[in-house]
């Protein structure tokens, strides 16, 4: 069995505020395993602790308790970070031309010479930054900065790519570009760890995902495992009276919600009434539903603040 790309083992992180004598538990018994070669979605509402977990993995912060491994080495191991690419949330750069910035970050990872130059040029092209490569990044929009951020994260051809809300400022075309890049990375055997609070971003490409609520992993699984409540279905039909079936009318179709066991019976009833069945679909919860449901289960508001 190969070692996981990322492993958080019962990590707790408490932020202490010096002046207010108040502490916030951003992570609380947080455990998670990300396997190599998967695109892993890391979902949770704002303030759930996603950024905190990522920063601990990269060694920017130290956990109050617990341990973890990144590519088989303890968090914070400098040489291991050479094999990792990271894009921060609200990324910020020095006031230098975009192309030079990407080369600078590549060089910090030990790259040099023609290899660095060609990797940079290729990535800038892929991210549609070639034309602005000579322009100072301080004049860039947030979306452009995010592209530069992706380029610097990818320049060393990392085995593990950690992205903290990478598409929050991108337009739809930018999102498609990112999706393609991530799928390409996965097909090349890389691991992608993608944090987001947007389901639409995650569900299209992720193999598995975890939902974090208040510093704990509330659920882990494939997208369909987490979102499909498999015991209920929606039958879409037409040519029947919606009142008889307790359905709702939408765009000329009748939608009827039934439990899994009542599916066959309902379809036969529609046919007997001379109606036509157009589709039968499992009910999908939205991520919002799931967040609300999980948050209720875990009780109380997002973060716990307490006086010491």
């Amino acid at each position: 069995m190969t070692s996981p790309a990322l492993e958080f083992d019962n990590i707790t992180k408490q932020y202490r505020s010096f002046f207010h004598n108040e502490s916030v538990k951003a992570l609380d018994g947080f455990s998670l395993r990300v396997e190599q070669g998967e695109i892993f979605g890391f979902l949770g509402p704002n303030g759930a602790g996603k950024t905190t977990a990522i920063h601990i993995a990269l060694g920017f912060m130290f956990p109050s308790s617990g341990r973890g491994l990144m590519l088989g080495r303890p968090f914070g191991h400098a040489a291991t970070r050479r094999r990792v690419g990271f894009l921060a949330e609200n990324v910020a750069f020095y006031h230098r031309p975009a192309g030079r910035l990407v080369r600078f970050y590549g060089a910090l990872n030990g790259m040099h010479g023609p290899q660095l130059r060609s990797c940079t040029a290729e990535l800038l092209k892929e991210l549609e930054l070639s034309e602005v490569a000579g322009r100072n990044a301080s004049k860039f929009s947030r979306g452009m900065l995010q592209r530069v951020g992706l380029a610097q994260a990818l320049v060393n051809d990392p085995e593990l790519l950690i992205l903290d809300e990478p598409t929050s400022a991108l337009d739809p075309l930018g999102r498609i570009t990112v999706r393609e890049i991530l799928l390409k990375a996965r097909n090349a055997g890389k691991t992608v760890f993608l944090s987001s609070h947007l389901l639409s971003e995650v569900e299209q490409i992720c193999d598995r995902m975890a939902i974090v609520i208040k510093g704990r992993v509330a659920r882990v699984g494939t997208v369909s495992e987490l979102l499909e409540a498999q015991n209920r279905f929606v039958i879409t039909a037409r040519g029947i009276d919606e009142l008889l079936f307790e359905g709702t009318r939408q765009n000329g179709f009748i939608k009827i919600t039934v439990p899994a066991l009542g599916q066959r019976q309902a379809i036969e009833k529609i046919w007997l009434a001379g109606g036509e069945v157009i589709a039968v679909n499992p009910i999908r919860r939205t991520l919002e539903d799931l967040f609300v449901e999980l948050a209720h289960k875990n009780g109380g508001p997002h973060t716990e603040k307490r006086r010491q």
């Binding site: 400098a78 040489a79 094999r83 990324v91 020095y94 970050y105 910090l108 990872n109």
Partner: peptide, 14 residues
């Protein structure tokens, strides 16, 4: 504060 330190220290440097 500017968060520029993050991209730098995410590289393989001490």
């Amino acid at each position: 504060k500017s968060r520029r330190i993050l991209a730098v220290l995410s590289k393989g440097i001490h």
